[in-house]
Simulated assay, not measured.
Amino acid sequence: MDDAAPVDAPSPDVGVSAPLSQGELDTLTDKLIEQLKTVYDPEIPVDIYELGLIYKVDVSDERAVAIDMTLTAPGCPVAGDMPGWVQDAVLTIPEVTACEVNLVFDPPWDPSLMSDEAKLELNMF
């Protein structure tokens, strides 16, 4: 008798990630925030996370990250560079498999989106 598996037998899931547990997601979220805080708008001495430039971060079960972000102004001189800086920072996290950064302008950024920490740093209280 032949011990070979039938032709239509399902193959093992090679390379398929298990869904993220809440603990894994929490840990990855902390790492994402830490990395986002390493990116600064060159004209403002506050990181983009505290400035409120990050609108949305989605993490898939495959650990791919999709980020919607904005700029302080559409004509920002680093508009073409900043999404790449964000992507590079996020991709330093070993668990992250991919990162896509989308630049959006709706809603438009305004100073009310800044954290209290950013407002304090910029003397805006």
Results as ranks from 00 to 15, higher is better:
D116K: 08
P45D: 14
Y49T: 00
C76L: 01
D41T: 06
P107S: 07
Q22G: 10
D26L: 12
I93R: 11
I48Q: 03
F105N: 04
M1N: 12
I67C: 03
S11N: 11
S112C: 10
A98S: 11
G52F: 10
E117L: 14
S17L: 08
P77D: 02
N123C: 00
K119W: 05
W109F: 13
L20M: 11
C99P: 02
P94S: 13
L120W: 06
L91T: 11
L103E: 05
Y49N: 00
D47T: 06
E100F: 03
K119I: 07
L51D: 03
G52N: 08
E100V: 06
D2K: 09
G84L: 09
S115D: 05
G84I: 13
K56E: 10
E34L: 10
D106A: 04
E95L: 05
R63K: 08
L32S: 13
L103Y: 01
P94C: 06
P12F: 11
V96F: 02
I93L: 02
L120H: 05
E34S: 15
E24R: 01
D68V: 04
V14G: 00
L122Q: 07
M69A: 02
Q22W: 07
D58N: 01
A9E: 12
E100G: 05
A64R: 10
T38A: 09
I33T: 11
I48E: 00
T27N: 13
L120T: 12
